[in-house]
Amino acid sequence: MRTFEEKVAAAAAADVTGWGFGFLDGRATEERPPWGYVRRLADALSSADAALDLDTGGGEVLAEALDLSARRPVRAAATEGWEPNLVRARERLHPLGVEVMAAGPGAPLPFAAGSFDLVTSRHPVAPDWAEIARVLRPGGGYLAQHVGPASAFELVEYFLGPQPEARKGRDPEREAEQARGSGLDVDELLTARCRMEFFDIGAVVWILRKCPWWVPDFTPARYEAKLRQLDAQLRSEPFVAHSTRHLIRATRVGPAERRGRAAR
């Protein structure tokens, strides 16, 4: 059996770019939401003429969905804001005919108004509803799986202690209201709470590097005492946490319908 030091060193050196999670195979598990996002994305892409994927990571999810789609959009584009992921996304998606543009959270999308009839995202950093509505054509759709409130907070709070204010973020009903306020009709809003199990301290170190917003000041050295305590537990039983997700499907309201609503 590998020592604590060996497991931590391997996890600290492992690649965390992109949205692949192969490092966790055999080290951790997570239930998937029941709606099957990749399959739904593939179906939506099959009926789209121009599609945009936001915060695409390394392009893994979009590439898988394009492979499953019965028909690919005439125009496909994606955005990513983190340079290492941007490089990976271009390597993966350019051969599939996907235009990949740099766009970070809070920045305007580098596309003209009404450019797309489908905008998608799996785990967007911070949805900019006004920009999403702007680049959608009237009648166009938004389909995304978002991270929900207090996701994996059992693990977050193990390191940081209680986070009552942070637990209130990413509320699905609040996000739906924000979407409506930007001119979108919310057609579907589904939520799920999924069990996560960590079996190996390397999995914990790696996921905290992969998702640095969970424990922003994390380094193995800074949290060595906590990691050693958790390692002792993991050698006899898993650490259990829960991820939260919501699926949101929305349609951009057309000008005529918006005028009609304003007149009521």
Rank of each mutant, 00 (worst) to 15 (best):
E224Y: 03
L136H: 03
E224P: 01
V215K: 00
V16H: 08
E224G: 00
R222V: 02
E91M: 01
D185Q: 04
A263C: 00
R92A: 07
V16I: 15
D231F: 06
E165P: 07
T120L: 10
E131P: 11
A112N: 08
P95A: 06
F239D: 01
V16T: 15
L190E: 15
D185F: 03
E177H: 06
M196S: 10
L41H: 13
P220M: 08
V186S: 09
W213D: 05
V186R: 07
R180W: 00
L93K: 06
D217M: 04
A133W: 04
A152N: 15
E237I: 04
P95N: 05
H246C: 13
T244R: 12
A263G: 00
E154M: 03
P172Y: 07
V204F: 01
E197D: 10
I201V: 14
P127K: 03
V38F: 05
W206M: 06
G57H: 06
V8F: 03
P164G: 09
E83L: 12
A221V: 09
V156G: 01
H123T: 02
A133Y: 09
M196I: 12
L54M: 11
P34W: 04
G36V: 08
E237Y: 05
L62V: 14
R245Q: 14
F116C: 02
D217G: 10
V204S: 02
L227N: 09
F153H: 13
L66P: 11
E30F: 12
W35T: 13
E197Q: 14
A10V: 05
Q178K: 11
A63Q: 06
R134H: 13
A12I: 01
E60I: 09
G141I: 03
V135Q: 04
K7L: 14
G104R: 12
R245A: 15
C211G: 13
R258N: 01
R72D: 07
K168Q: 15
H94L: 10
V87G: 07
R92F: 04
E157H: 04
L155W: 07
P33L: 04
R167T: 09
S151L: 02
E60V: 11
E165D: 15
L208C: 04
A102N: 02
D53H: 13
A144E: 12
V98N: 02
A13F: 02
V8Y: 03
R88A: 15
H246S: 07
A103I: 03
